[in-house]
Simulated assay, not measured.
Amino acid sequence: MDMLVRSWLCIPALKEGLEQKIVQSTADIVLLDLEDSIPIHKKSLAREKLLKLDRSIWHQCNLAVRINAPSKPEGIRDLVFLMDNNIVPKYLVVPKVESSGELRVLGELMSAAGGRTQCFGIVETLKGLRRIDAIINESMNLHGLILGSADLSSEISFRISKAALMQIKCEMALAALSVGLKVIDTPCFNLRCETRLKDEIESAKSLGYSGKIAIHPSQVALINKLFSPSQEELDRAEAIFACLESPELPTAIASIDGDMIGPPFAVLAEKLLATQQMVINKKT
Rank of each mutant, 00 (worst) to 15 (best):
P73S: 11
I156V: 15
I160N: 07
K225Y: 12
S25Q: 07
T186V: 11
M140F: 13
P73C: 11
K90D: 03
K198D: 07
R116V: 03
I29V: 15
K271F: 04
N190I: 10
K182N: 14
L32W: 04
L177Y: 03
A69D: 15
F265P: 00
S154C: 14
S161C: 04
L51C: 04
L165A: 11
A175F: 02
Q276T: 05
R55D: 08
L92K: 07
A274L: 10
L244Y: 09
G148P: 10
V97K: 01
A46S: 06
E232L: 14
L197Y: 00
I168K: 09
Q60L: 15
A274Q: 14
I22Y: 00
P264M: 07
A46C: 06
L51N: 11
D199V: 08
A269M: 08
K21R: 13
K72N: 08
C170W: 07
L50D: 01
C243Q: 06
K127N: 13
S246Y: 04
L51G: 03
D33G: 04
S157H: 15
I168S: 10
G144H: 00
K90M: 05
M110N: 10
I57E: 06
N137H: 11
K271D: 08
V183C: 06
K169C: 04
Q276D: 09
S44Y: 12
S149I: 10
G121D: 04
I22G: 00
L45M: 13
R104S: 08
P229S: 12
E202Q: 13
P247D: 08
Q219P: 00
C61I: 07
R66Q: 08
Y209I: 02
V94L: 09
M83E: 05
L106R: 01
S149F: 02
E200Y: 02
